[in-house]
Design a protein around this nucleic acid. Structure first.
Lengths: 232, 232
DNA sequence: CGCCTGATTGATAAGTATCAAGGTCGGTGG
DNA sequence: CCACCGACCTTGATACTTATCAATCAGGCG
């Protein structure tokens, strides 16, 4: 059992519903509707490092993160990984991909992760019956799209230093000032190399923006305000 | 009247509906529903070079391109433009932005352009009443999002040459082998400079992938197949 | 204690942007 | 009709940013 990397678990109905409530796309649903939704949903655990799905897999399940962190990324032709987002509690794993035939990104558990999942068919039917959810999904992807547009502008127009600062800023406003990330993971997120990331981080450390205690897969941001309107 | 850069025109109801029909998000609507939609829509002309809306403007209108080409882009802090897409007949101009408070990209007429537009409020009500449209929109943005993800992977992981080839490939499969673009416009699309674009194009010309007749704001792709599985 | 992963630093090379200078085409106005 | 002007294209030389390669260091875990 110990080696099993993915397994279904039991969770009280109330916990499932509470988990779903974390997800803003369901904000407009009544208690009744949430209860219905809860019955369609199965909790699943993926242990650290497991792939939840891979790019190109047929899109079979809708997922909401109940607990843990999941990395969402693509791998380039030359084998580099680019991380697009790190999903935490209450976030969906590409809710929009279910509207296409296959997933267009890969997802991997960064820690042991509990997810709530639902078959694609049921999900599509559910969304079709709840326009409010559909509209929230649109708003959500619009945000994502904008973020990617900004990332492209950043990569093309700005220097690595600024890009890394933006990434840190995004991550810090989502997860707080203390980030559990290796330099490698941050590099993937910013679309650069580990070495360059390290060099920039030391620079930022000198300027006092990030803390010196940053070691072994941890980065601590001491001055978020400075970080956010940083301009080299 | 000649100097007026934006003006409302009249169009027969049947033409409006025909224009809307070009847009795949309305595929599932009945003739009746299309007729209703048609009455909510106003045709507007923007002359070449005019901005239809700018990044940050409150999102006031939903637009479908009836005729002409529209550039969708963002401008970086350092003043560079990055083009995300070139919208032609039947395409929406960021249908998803209407679900946020403001536009997150700018749009500019690349030629004289006729658009069909509809107030934001009516649009949101309409989508709320037609789940099929909402779901098509989700699928559409999912595609867009995927394309941006791919673009990021390209920029980070591949060389300019390959990136330009991808851009040409995308444009050619959309607009045919003969593209009316200046090198500058292509450069913005690929996220590089005019000079680099030119150098790559001459290289491709030597290899016979694009035609020599490519001059004065025109690029002719002679061998799309080779282009599509090009690998330097 | 030794191994393995992640962090760090330095030297070097490659890819592109930038800057500079000309060339070509098309249109406009005298 | 011709000459000029401006927009676009082209080419070359140079500089800068960042990736790559190589080597070392540090800490946790079996």
């Amino acid at each position: 059992l110990k080696d099993l990397r993915t397994y279904v678990i039991n969770l009280r109905e109330s916990s499932k519903i509470e988990g779903l409530r974390q997800c803003p796309i369901f904000d407009d649903l009544s208690a009744e509707e949430m209860k219905d939704l809860g019955t369609c949903v199965t909790p699943v655990i993926f242990s650290k490092g497991t792939f939840i799905f891979k790019e190109g897999d047929p899109s079979a399940f809708f997922y909401v993160v109940y607990d843990g962190l999941v990395q969402v990324f693509k791998t380039s032709g030359s084998g580099k990984n680019v991380t697009f987002t790190i999903a935490g509690r209450g976030e969906t794993l590409m809710a929009s991909a279910l509207f296409l035939d296959s997933y267009f990104v890969s997802t991997q558990a960064m820690s042991d992760v509990t997810l709530l999942r639902m078959g694609r068919k049921e999900w599509l039917v559910f969304v079709g019956r709840h326009p409010s959810v559909a509209m929230k999904i649109i708003a959500l992807i619009a945000h994502r799209l904008n973020r990617e547009y900004e990332r492209v502008v950043d990569i093309v127009g700005e220097e690595v230093e600024l890009r890394l600062v933006h990434c840190l800023s995004i991550l810090a406003s989502k997860f707080g000032p203390s980030l559990s990330l290796t330099r490698q993971e941050l590099a993937n997120f910013a679309g650069t190399t580990t070495e360059t990331t390290i060099r920039v981080l030391s620079k930022l450390k000198k300027k006092g923006v990030i803390s010196c205690s940053a070691s072994r897969g941890e980065i601590v941001i001491s001055d978020l305000a400075t970080l956010q309107n940083y301009s080299m």
